[in-house]
């Protein structure tokens, strides 16, 4: 007879598995030194290119937006690019596992597939982030010659970057899962990427958008992914910064529900028709 009736996974066992996968992701990211070096170089090049563009952009013509200038914009894209580079194209892993018919095997492991993937991705992203952030911040500091971060801003940035990265990872996980129902992951990723770029404010803060578009963008999760953490560079007050956390937390909750809902649909579909995409 089984030792314990199932239904609720033993928490301790679950934690051991999650920690192992987190460490696996962390170690994998750090062991891929060449890839990491290439990403670092790309990051610095991107910052330099944007710095060059912003140096000839007449930000002073933006009425009522005194905080936006070439230096603050360089720091802004340093933060937004950090999130996008750390997350990369994670959805491809899920897509490939579905195409290879591996998902059936993966869902018979003691930990749910979504939890295994998120634990590994979190470890990988954190390791990459901790390597990329100093490189990018050093580059931005050298190019702009200023350091806009008060200590509490930096602490807040770390929290918001962690949340924003999780949000984007969850979006990638969901996009990858779509491949189970047909060749949908790539087009979905394309759409997701464009929306991240436009509605997330990848290279321009939402403050410069027209009113209607700004309000619409701010009501999507994309703004919480990029614009949220990056706008800390404009030096919000403590109250404003905490207010900026609200949509991030809200979207984290919504996205977590979405991941669990979609994952349950995956289990139902695999249970009904099998794991051959």
């Amino acid at each position: 007879m089984p030792n314990a009736r199932p239904g609720r996974m033993d928490d301790r066992r679950r934690r051991v598995g999650i920690r192992a996968l987190f460490r696996f992701g962390w170690r994998s990211a750090l062991s891929e030194r060449f890839s990491l070096a290439v990403i670092c170089v790309t990051y610095v090049v991107l910052i330099a290119v944007f710095a060059s563009i912003f140096s000839i952009t007449p930000f002073f013509e933006l009425e009522g937006l005194a905080e936006i200038n070439a230096a603050s914009m360089i720091w802004y894209v340093t933060v937004t690019e950090l999130v996008t580079l750390v997350v990369g194209n994670r959805y491809i892993e899920v897509r490939e596992e579905i195409l290879a018919g591996q998902v059936g095997g993966l869902i018979t492991r003691p930990l749910p597939y979504w939890l295994m993937k998120m634990a590994e991705w979190t470890g990988r992203s954190l390791a990459q982030g901790l390597v990329l952030a100093p490189v990018g911040f050093l580059a931005a500091a050298l190019i702009t010659g200023n350091w806009p971060w008060a200590p509490w801003h930096l602490a807040m940035l770390a929290v918001m970057l962690a949340g924003a990265t999780m949000l984007m990872l969850m979006a990638h996980f969901m996009v990858g899962l779509l491949e189970l129902w047909g060749p949908h992951a790539r087009p979905a990723h394309w759409i997701n990427q464009k929306f991240t770029f436009l509605l997330g404010g990848l290279i321009l803060p939402l403050a410069v958008y027209p009113d209607g578009l700004r309000q619409f963008a701010a009501s999507t999760p994309y703004a919480a992914m990029l614009h949220g953490p990056a706008s800390l560079v404009f030096g919000p007050s403590a109250a404003e910064a905490i207010t900026m956390l609200v949509p991030l937390l809200l979207w984290l909750g919504v996205m977590a529900v979405g991941v669990l809902w979609l994952y349950q649909r995956v289990l139902d579909t695999v249970g009904r028709v099998g794991d051959q995409a």
């Binding site: 089984p2 199932p6 095997g105 018979t108 003691p110």
Partner: peptide, 16 residues
Amino acid sequence: ERQALAYRIGIVFGQR
């Protein structure tokens, strides 16, 4: 009870 069962069974699908 898929996840609880996972500790009790081993699976080898030759092609995967």
